[in-house]
Amino acid sequence: MTDQAYNFAYLDEQTKRMIRRAILKGLAIPGYQVPFASREMPMPYGWGTGGVQVSAATLTPEDTFKVIDQGADDTTNAVSIRKFFQRTAGVATTEETDKATVIQTRHRIPETPLGEDQVLVYQVPIPEPLRFLEPRETETRKMHSLEEYGLMHVKLYEDISQHGAIATSYAYPVKVEGRYVMDPSPIPKFDNPKMADCPAIQLFGAGREQRIYALPPYTKVVSLDFEDHPFDPSKADHACDLCGAGESYLDEVITDDAGGRMFVCSDTDYCRARREAGHLGAQAAVMEEEAGA
């Protein structure tokens, strides 16, 4: 049921129009960060206010909404954001990736491939990929305008000379359509390849930093690398201990204080669906027993 004290999807119409205009410009210039007059939301900056504003401007009453944090639907902040839109927009919600029309995410792209009828909304803390190399916005904006990305390549190259490999494992920078270097939000680099040629619309909202950017479907998105050090979207060299999936991103869970641990899918919906379809991992039986106890 919608909360009548607030407008549909919380934000007033003028604010939504302003955000919508920014989204359209973002789609027209893939990877470019469009400044927008981010509003103070009833949740803290840094907790998804950018994603929430983009979702608020995007949702219609016909949508089915899914929210994940770290790949999971039931992490507390995901629960909180889902509840916010249930209250203010009256939208249906789901945990199933393929039933959702709008998915708001923090730090993951779902394992289930997205389709043309879906919109993926990313929460972004620091939208500027060059920020940790150059803290000044006035400078980084100039660098983007001049397509001056040498600093980024130098940083990655220094990694290689120091560590023998590029030492960035999440928020790994990408180049969009050969023009803008873009921050993919702090997803693990394992997820980077899913951004390229994706049939869904991908929208990125950074509330505190007041930026929106976007990737239309089927956009060229290339993770930065070097010929002799190609991009490596690696993950833990295990299969999921619950569902046996070998191709999904895994969380490492410490199970006792004697070095015991297990690896489980970070995408809880993907893992559940696989188990329901009869796939079992090495420790699935143990878990069933424990859960039933």
């Binding site: 103070e40 803290p44 900056y45 840094g46 907790w47 206010t49 944090d69 770290q70 790949g71 992490t75 902040n77 923090r106 730090h107 993951r108 803390p125 560590h163 023998g164 490999a165 030492a167 494992s169 999440y170 928020a171 702090p186 997803i187 693990p188 680099k189 394992f190 505190r208 690696s234 993950k235 833990a236 991103y249 895994l250 969380d251 490492e252 970070s266």
Partner: peptide, 28 residues
Amino acid sequence: IQATGFLEHIKLPHYVDFQSELELVRKL
């Protein structure tokens, strides 16, 4: 309000990013 939000957001789960770092450090 900006500062406290961003500061306090590091309380939120970051285990996916951390896992990514963990794998990288192990590999190196």
